[in-house]
Lab assay of single mutants.
Amino acid sequence: MDALKSAGRALIRSPSLAKQSWGGGGRHRKLPENWTDTRETLLEGMLFSLKYLGMTLVEQPKGEELSAAAIKRIVATAKASGKKLQKVTLKVSPRGIILTDNLTNQLIENVSIYRISYCTADKMHDKVFAYIAQSQHNQSLECHAFLCTKRKMAQAVTLTVAQAFKVAFEFWQVSKEEKEKRDKASQEGGDVLGARQDCTPPLKSLVATGNLLDLEETAKAPLSTVSANTTNMDEVPRPQALSGSSVVWELDDGLDEAFSRLAQSRTNPQVLDTGLTAQDMHYAQCLSPVDWDKPDSSGTEQDDLFSF
C-alpha cells in the first residue's frame, strides 16, 4: 500500500511530472533526481522514447528462454528487412502500455495491464526491452520488442512496467475491499429498513384510530445511509488515497477476473515476472533518469539497429 499512497501523494503535489519523457535525446524537461521519484509518476504514465523492432507469436506467457528466442527472431526479421526502425513513445501506467508513433502521434497499440504476463531486458541484446501480452483480438500470446538507447534504459522500462503492474494490483485490492464494505453496509441498511417496515402498523389501523404518522421519526431512520450505499452501487469504487486528485481509476471486468485468478494461483500475485536478476534490479533502481541518457562506457552510441 505504500507504493499506492506515495504515488497518489506525488501526483497530487505535481501532476505535471508524469508528462516528462525519457530517452528522447535531450528533449525532456528537468528530471527527478532518483528512481523513487520517477516511480511516483506512474499514475498518469511515464513516457519512454524507443524504437519498435516488431512482434512475434509465442506459445507460453512467460520465460527467459522463451523471450530470448522470440527477441532473436524479431531482431533477425528487422535486420533482414533493412528498413529504419519506427520511433515510438511507450506510455507506461497502472492501466497498461500505450504505444504511439512519434511522427504521426497515431495510436499503435493499447495493452491493458492485466494482459501483460512478462517483461524483460534481454541478456543477449542488452539494449532490447520486450514484453509478452495476450492479444486483445484473440487468445494468442505476442512478444513485442523495442530497441532502447542503452542497457540502462531497457532495464528502466522493464522495472517501470513491473512497478505499474504492482500498483494496478494494489488498486484492485483496495477497490475489492471498498466494494465488500459497501455491499455489507448496503445489506445491513436493508435489514434495518426491513425491520422498521415489519414493526410499522398498517396504514388502515392508523387511520381508524385517528393517529398521525410521525414524519420526524421517519426522517431519523437510516434511510439516507441505505440510499447512499445503493444509489451508486454500479459505480466502481476508487482508492481513497486518490481522493481529490485528477486521476480516475476504473476497474473493468477483465482486470477484476484476471487479478482474482492471480490472487488464487500465485504466492506473490502482485509481482510481474521479469528477466532481471536481483543485481540488475538493484543497479537500475539506483540510477537517476539522467543516467539513462548518458552514453555507455563501451563506446559511442549508434542510432541504428545494427549497432548491437
Rank of each mutant, 00 (worst) to 15 (best):
M46T: 12
I116A: 00
T267D: 04
S224M: 08
W249V: 04
S6I: 09
K72C: 13
K51M: 01
K152H: 03
K91C: 04
Q155N: 11
R39G: 04
K179Q: 13
V92T: 10
M124G: 06
L85S: 00
T209G: 08
Q270E: 01
L31D: 14
L4Y: 06
T274M: 03
G54V: 03
Q134H: 14
D183F: 13
S135H: 14
G63N: 14
L223S: 03
L206Q: 11
A76Y: 08
D256R: 03
E142T: 15
Q139Y: 06
A69S: 10
G189K: 06
L90G: 01
Q285R: 07
A69V: 10
A68I: 02
E142H: 03
G194L: 13
I98T: 14
D214E: 15
L223I: 05
V207D: 03
K91T: 13
D183L: 15
D296Y: 06
G244Y: 13
S81T: 15
Y283F: 06
L90V: 11
E257W: 02
L305N: 09
V111W: 09
D303Q: 08
T274L: 02
V226Y: 08
V236G: 12
L53G: 00
K87Q: 15
L17E: 12
A69F: 09
K127L: 01
L203T: 13
T158L: 02
R151A: 15
W22G: 11
A10H: 03
V157L: 14
E180S: 15
R95K: 03
E178A: 12
N110S: 07
I71V: 09
R115N: 09
T209H: 09
Q139C: 13
S246Q: 08
N138K: 15
H282Q: 12
N211Y: 07
K152Q: 15
S135M: 12
A78N: 00
K79A: 01
R13I: 14
K84L: 08
D126E: 00
V128C: 00
L42F: 06
K176Q: 15
D303G: 07
Q163E: 08
L31V: 12
A130Y: 00
D256L: 02
G210M: 09
H28P: 15
A145P: 00
T158A: 13
D273H: 05
G25E: 14
A208F: 03
L42Q: 12
Q187E: 05
L203S: 06
M281Y: 06
N138F: 14
E65F: 12
G189E: 07
T300N: 10
S135G: 09
P202Y: 03
L50G: 06
V167G: 04
A68N: 11
V92L: 12
V161A: 06
E216H: 12
A185Q: 07
L251Y: 09
E177G: 13
A145C: 00
S245G: 10
L50H: 03
P222W: 13
A68D: 01
S245N: 11
I97Y: 01
I108V: 13
G25A: 04
A278L: 10
R95F: 05
Q264G: 05
L272K: 06
W292F: 05
D101I: 01
G82H: 02
T149Y: 09
V247M: 06
T218Y: 02
M124I: 11
Y52N: 10
Q163I: 10
L141H: 15
Q86W: 12
K127A: 00
P202C: 01
A278P: 02
T56C: 03
W249G: 08
A76D: 05
L11H: 11
I132D: 01
R27A: 13
L212V: 13
T300R: 07
L43T: 08
E188N: 03
T231G: 07
P94E: 02
S135K: 04
D214C: 07
Y114S: 04
A18N: 11
L272P: 03
E257M: 09
T200D: 05
G190D: 03
N232D: 09
A219F: 07
P239N: 10
D252A: 07
Q60S: 04
Q20G: 13
Q264S: 15
S14V: 07
T104A: 05
G82Y: 04
T277L: 06
S260H: 10
R39F: 11
A284L: 02
A69Q: 11
A154V: 14
F306Q: 15
R261P: 10
T267Y: 11
A221R: 02
R151M: 04
P289I: 03
A145Q: 00
V161Y: 05
S117K: 11
L17S: 15
A18G: 13
L255K: 03
L107M: 15
P201K: 13
T225V: 05
Y283S: 11
S175G: 15
K83G: 08
D214L: 14
G244F: 07
S93F: 13
M153F: 11
R266H: 06
